[in-house]
Simulated assay, not measured.
Amino acid sequence: MTPYGSFTFFFILVVLLAPTVILGLLGKRFHTYNMFVSIIALGIIFASSLNQAIALIIFTFWQVVLIKAYIAYRKKSNRNTIFYTAVILSILPLVVSKLLPYFSDVNLIGFLGISYLTFKGTQLIMETRDGLIKKDLPLSRLLYFILFFPTISSGPIDRYRRFNKDLEVGISGEQYKLLLYEGINKIFRGFLYKYIIGYSINHFFITNLRFIAHSHFQHHLYYMYAYSLYLFFDFAGYSAFAIGVSYMMGIKSPENFNKPFLSRNMKDFWNRWHMSLSFWFRDYVYMRFVFWMTKKKWIKNRNLLSNLGYLLLFLLMGVWHGLEVQYIIYGIYHALLMMAYNSFERFNKKHKWWPQNKLTHIVAIIITFHVVCFGFYIFSGQLFHKGV
C-alpha cells in the first residue's frame, strides 16, 4: 500500500494513532507505542510485496551492523580508510538498486524508501566520524529512527540528534494539543495541495494539453509551467502528510518546502525547495568536498573550488534520480546556474550593479521562477521526447 496514496491508508492511520492521541492529550509518554505502530504500518505498506519486505529487513540489518560497528571502532581509532569503507558499504545497496534496473528486469535489492533510509544511515556514520555522536545508540531508538514510517518513502530526511531530542523531551497534555493541532492542519494542507490543486492541474490541464495548446511551442510552454506547479503541489502535499503524521506522533520532522517559487535567486531556491534533501547534499557532499580539497591544498582558488563543489553536488543529485539523460542534464543545468550566480554575486558585491529595492526583488523572483520552471521541464523528460 502506497503511503498517503488512498483514503484507506488514512483510515488505517486514524485507527492506529487513536491511542497515541489519547495518551498525548493525557500527558502520557507514547513513543514505545509509536514504535509498535511503525512496525504495523510498515507491515501494511509492504504487505503487497514480499520481495520488498525482505529487502527492507536485510537492508536495515546491514545498516544497523555498519553503524554499530563504526561507532564501536570510532571510540578507539579514526583511520580514513575505515571511514571511507563504512560510507561506501552504507551507500552500496542504494547504488546497486539504482543500477540494477538497467541490467535486469528483476530488482531484489530495491524497495520503497531505500534512498531516504540510506541517507539516514550514511549520515549517522559521518556524524560519528565528526564526533557529533560519541556514544553507542540504543538499538530500539536506532531502528525507530531509520524505520520511522511517516517519512519512509520520500522524506523529509531527519537528523538523528534532532529526532532523538524529540524522544527525550517530555510533552505535557497542553503542549501535545498544540502539536496535534499543527499536525492536523498540515494534513489538511496536504489534502488541499496534493488531492485538490495538484490533481486538478494534472487532470484538467496537463492531460488535456492537446486540446488547449494550438501549436507545438504552446504545448511545451504550457507543459513547462503546469508541470512545475503540479510537481510542487504534489510533492509538497505528500511532505505535509508526512510531517503532519510525525507531529501527531510527537516528532517534529523538518519542513521540506518554504514558498520556493518566491525565491530571489538559485541559492535561495535550494534553501526553500526539498530542503531536507538539499541540506543533506550540502552538508555531506558539498561541504565535505570543499573542506577536503582545502585541507589537501589541491585547489587554492576558492571560486573554482566552490564551482567544482556545485558540479559534484548537482551531478550526484541528478544521477540519484536516475541515469536517464534528462536527470544528468538537469543536474548540470543547476550546477551551471549556481556557478553563474556565484560569479554574479562576486561581481555585484564589487561593482554594486544590481541595487537592492522592491522592484529588483520582484524582478529577481520572476527571473528565478522562469529559470526554475525550465529546469523542471528538463527534469520531466519532455524536452527529449520526439513527437510531443
Rank of each mutant, 00 (worst) to 15 (best):
G131L: 02
V65Y: 01
W292S: 08
I251N: 04
F374A: 01
T118F: 02
P138D: 14
K194V: 03
N80L: 08
R282V: 07
I378A: 12
G198C: 06
E345W: 13
K76W: 14
R264N: 01
Y223S: 08
I146K: 09
Q175W: 06
M338P: 08
T368W: 10
I152P: 00
S97N: 01
P93R: 07
S115A: 11
T207M: 12
W292E: 12
Y84S: 03
K295S: 12
Y247F: 11
N348C: 05
F10S: 11
V372N: 00
Y327C: 03
W354Y: 13
H385F: 00
G375S: 02
Y181K: 15
A41S: 06
K300D: 14
S97C: 06
I109Y: 04
F111K: 06
N164G: 10
W298L: 15
D166T: 02
G27L: 05
K135N: 15
R29T: 04
G131W: 04
Y102V: 05
M275H: 15
T118A: 01
S215T: 04
V14Q: 12
D105I: 15
L94C: 00
W298N: 14
K300C: 00
R74I: 03
I197D: 06
M293C: 12
K186N: 13
N271F: 09
I54P: 03
N185C: 09
W270L: 05
I58K: 09
T20N: 14
L13P: 06
I22Q: 04
S90M: 09
Y222G: 11
L316F: 15
K267N: 07
H321I: 05
P93K: 07
I366A: 09
V371H: 01
W270H: 10
V37L: 07
T294W: 05
I197F: 11
W62D: 00
K75N: 12
L117H: 01
G309T: 01
H334G: 07
I332E: 01
A18F: 14
S153G: 11
L13R: 13
H274R: 04
V21N: 03
V290K: 02
I54H: 05
K300R: 13
N80W: 01
L311W: 04
N303M: 15
Y230P: 04
K194N: 13
I57D: 11
P156Q: 01
V14S: 11
S154E: 11
Y33K: 04
A240L: 12
T122C: 00
L25C: 12
I67N: 04
M248H: 08
I152F: 06
L23E: 03
I44Q: 03
F379N: 10
P101F: 07
L359K: 12
K165C: 04
T32K: 07
S278D: 10
L137G: 08
H361N: 05
Y181W: 12
